[in-house]
């Protein structure tokens, strides 16, 4: 039995909708008969098959998650012992996600690569180690790491590996 029946329920709905959507989209794809090609080489054939299987698997997961939810409702679920830890983990996750997205989607392209990278590393280290040491020492560590990483990655990739940077 699944350990995540609630998530399974919603994900099964998403997978079923995706599968049906893929089937519908595949049927809409041209058969290219006007080009004189064999109808069995139509571009929608394989995606249609995959969409059909995905929808079937989604339905199977949906039915199973319904049974699991019923079972979970009948047996009163005890409150999770590590709720506080989970909340802290959730906060760390959210902050990491936001910082990474800001770096990749906002800073890169607006600022030179080395500057965007230095700012990202500095902010990441500073935020996640804030409570551990004195502010000045912390800022110095974060700044040194940020400068070293930005310089090393820029030089290494551009000069040694001859790779273009974003």
């Amino acid at each position: 039995m699944s350990e995540t029946p609630r998530a399974d329920f919603w994900f099964s709905v998403a997978i079923t909708v995706l599968g049906l959507g893929v089937v519908a989209e595949s049927l809409r794809m041209p058969r290219l008969e006007n080009l004189g090609v064999h109808p069995m080489s139509a571009p929608g054939l394989t995606p249609g098959l995959i969409g059909f299987v995905l929808a079937g698997l989604g339905v199977a997961l949906f039915l199973r998650s319904l049974r699991a939810r019923t079972a979970a409702t009948s047996a009163a679920a005890p409150r999770e012992a590590g709720a506080g830890e989970a909340a802290t983990g959730g906060r760390r996750l959210l902050i990491s996600l936001v910082l990474c997205l800001i770096y990749a989607m906002v800073l890169l392209g607006q600022l030179p690569f080395w500057l965007a990278t230095a700012l990202f590393v500095f902010a990441f280290v500073l935020i996640f180690t804030w409570q551990r040491r004195k502010a000045a020492q912390l800022a110095a560590t974060a700044a040194v790491l940020a400068i070293v990483v930005a310089a090393a990655v820029t030089l290494l990739f551009e000069q040694v590996f001859l790779v273009r940077l974003p």
């Binding site: 990202f120 180690t129 990655v153 974003p166």
Partner: peptide, 26 residues
């Protein structure tokens, strides 16, 4: 906390490097 931002920078550069497409970063 020191390692993960460096890994992410490498992930971004690595995704971009092959075809120089910002789309690959997305």
């Amino acid at each position: 906390e020191h390692l993960m931002p460096i890994i992410f920078v490498l992930c971004v550069v690595g995704s971009f490097a092959i075809a120089s497409r910002v789309f690959d970063v997305w």
